[in-house]
Design a protein around this nucleic acid. Sequence first.
DNA 1: CGTGACTCGCGGGCCACATTCTAGC
DNA 2: CCGCTAGAATGTGGCCCGCGAGTCA
Length: 382
Amino acid sequence: MLKEETSDASGGGGSGNNWARVCDTCRSAACTVYCQADSAYLCAGCDARVHAANRVASRHERVWVCEACERAPAAFLCKADAASLCTTCDAEIHSANPLARRHQRVPILPISGCLYGPSATELRGRKMASAAETEDGFMDPEGDETIAEDEDEAASWLLLNPGKNSTNQRNGCLFGGEVDDYLDIVEYNSSVENHITDQYNQQQQHYSVPNKSYGGDSVVPIQSGEAKDHLQQQQHQQQTLQFGLDYESSKAAYSYNGSVSHSVSLSSVDVGIVPESTMSDISISHRRPPKGTIDLFSGPSIQMPTQLTPMDREARVLRYREKKKTRKFEKTIRYASRKAYAETRPRIKGRFAKRTDVEVEVDQMFSTTLMTETGYGIVPSF
DNA sequence: CGTGACTCGCGGGCCACATTCTAGC
DNA sequence: CCGCTAGAATGTGGCCCGCGAGTCA
């Protein structure tokens, strides 16, 4: 019904055009809230009317629309700017300069009922209780069997990330899939801090944002230019990478300045190409943890929860389903320069073959040209 | 209904080498 | 502590081949 034009609801509507999104119901007024259950953008009037219609509708969770682009659900509240921002705008605005990066932001909690009624804290409990209801929009249409399957699968791998979940739990809110997903990305940047926070600062009340010690932004994933276009690929990648993070190696990863922008002009860019320098920074912490540190895969760092409350399990399953919806299976290119080289290498039956001296010379010429045209950091071999 | 032969599609392995990273000095 | 160097590890794309699933007699 109202699901048309909402496919970009997951924060992708950031800076497409400057026009505010119109209400999906009346099609006349600018939307002010996004209803997660209906997947619809509504103006204040329609929101009040639709969600006051009955008790079920009144429990629909809504989030404010981004104040910057007015086209996507807000995911973060910037305290410094006193503005609600979607993930895209948040990333753009707060990666603009070092000062902006230090803005403290907190995830926006969904609201339900009357927008000026009960507090979000009260409503959170309701969401937990009603999460299994079909009108929450998360119910799997495939039926109970699939759900049980999902839950089993979810339980099998979601448990690998206890710290993150505990953070959300501490926050007292099960975020919508979009926000939660974003936090998973963010967690690449902030996992270290959150990990420590989880261990040593159980009293912290809200999702940890400040990150002064590393000079980077713990909330906004650094993205610019091409990298922003491949945010989703990075999501997947970073979700994977975060499991391999450890404190020492992540410190190195935090040293990047976030202003890297590479242009990729290869013909086969239909896969997610991650800016090389950024990814190399990431790879610092991923590929080979320095000796003397503990890899999460081999060490005892992951503390598997011995027992899950039904609420915990439900929350994890919901998060898993949301992630499952947004999974990206496209191959992610971590090093565009290596891709460029691989594409130019001679092959015999698909295998790389040794190059002749002539080919080496040609390749050197190509490398020089490519470097000047694309900005890749390709160093010709001598 | 069970079994063997055949086809089809998927996924892993292989290759060379530039790049990246670590250890040692 | 910093810089340099040597060596090891990593990642990249296209093709081949094995294996499982599906179909048919």
